[in-house]
Amino acid sequence: MILKQLFLILSALFLGYALSLTVHLPIPANVIGFALLFAAICVGIVKLCHVDKVSDFIIKYLAVFFITPTVGIMQYFDLIGEQFIHIVVPLLASILIGFFVAAKVTELFIRLGERNRIKKGLGGSDAE
């Protein structure tokens, strides 16, 4: 079962690379693989129970795979030391601005949607 799951997930990544090598899009092959697997599950070619166990395992331990590249930061300590303030300022500011815009725009569109529903006489409350 695990082998079948691994095979299907690897196939999606394989097709992602195949597409990326032929079409030359500036989008990472694994993002294409992700989109392909998502589409395959939506259409029903692949069932969720065919890929869920391996996926849940990898997602649970996702961070383990990124320890090695994170440790790689030690090669750039000189650059970071020189530019510390120049890194922290745009990083923090962009996070705060991103939070503000994402939350405000989502809320705005929810309100607009509710107002439209009231106009149509369907009631404004968003019952769960």
Partner: peptide, 9 residues
């Protein structure tokens, strides 16, 4: 690279 693919789930 496999870790991005499984985000579909």
């Amino acid at each position: 690279p496999l870790t991005a693919v499984v985000l579909a789930v």
